[in-house]
Nucleic acid binder design. Structure first.
Lengths: 137, 137
DNA sequence: CCCATATTCAACCGCATGCTTGATTATCAA
DNA sequence: TTGATAATCAAGCATGCGGTTGAATATGGG
């Protein structure tokens, strides 16, 4: 899908700043992963981490400010829900460069096909080795 | 490193940290955009920005440390080249959530269809903006 | 050689981040 | 009312970031 179909060419830079900055932390990424498909309380969210509850609470606030999480308070509990909307903007941005790794993979695929073609009757059970992601030279 | 490198479940967190952090700055994103398709010198890269050359040089170093830019020095000049490889890891991460915005667009499409259906003979020239349907994962 | 050019290094400043511990607010339950 | 629970607020600390200016390091050209 073309990026211009549903979003402007360059979305709000400040939004992109906040989203990418929010994603630049392993705890926050793990929080988003845990919110994938279910809503969780702050304390439930904090449980697997080796840091204080307060620290997790602040991580959640960072995610809220980035628009990636919404909180709905009922009584003393606060249920956290994922909002993947802003991630879409990040996805549009990074996917602009997909041509590069696709070209890389296409080249690799052609190369592997070439190897396959030169092989003198490979064993039928031995599948072709999986494509390893090309590390930069 | 295994076969899962192509579509890694969880790539190296530190790499992801550096890549997302590098993308969380408008100057660095603009640098990457300007390097899309051509290599540029540091001074050429710095030209459109209202900050000092030293500041741009440090931004480039951040991008180099994130693996997004490589520098080839010949003499006193330093030619900068984009390496989109690490962006692929970021793309894999964010595209994991594509199901959400695709669902959103599907919902929007259904909603627009509903409106269309209730309209009593819409004007022929004013076409409803076409919504490209996102591919179902 | 002499000087301009290209880039980086170094020191500094202001501010944000990530974590801690302790206090506070608010709610539920006995 | 009393007390436990859920979550946030607040202060403090170490670290890192983004910007500046000034100096240093090559390198190329006259």
């Amino acid at each position: 899908m073309s990026a211009s179909d549903l979003t402007p060419e360059e979305p709000d830079p400040a939004t992109l700043d906040r989203v990418f900055a929010a994603l630049a932390d392993p705890v926050r990424r793990a929080i988003l992963r845990r919110l994938d498909g279910r809503d969780l309380l702050v304390s439930e969210l904090a449980e697997p981490f080796a840091i204080s509850l307060q620290a997790v609470s602040r991580h959640i606030q960072v995610l809220v400010r980035a628009g990636l999480v919404t909180q709905e308070r009922t009584g003393r509990i606060s249920r956290c829900r994922l909002d993947a909307g802003p991630i879409y903007q990040a996805a549009v941005w990074v996917n602009h460069y997909s041509k590069y790794w696709q070209a890389q993979f296409d080249t690799l695929a052609v190369w592997l096909d070439e190897i396959e073609r030169r092989k003198p009757a490979a064993s039928p059970t031995a599948a072709r080795p999986r494509l390893k992601r090309a590390r930069r030279a």
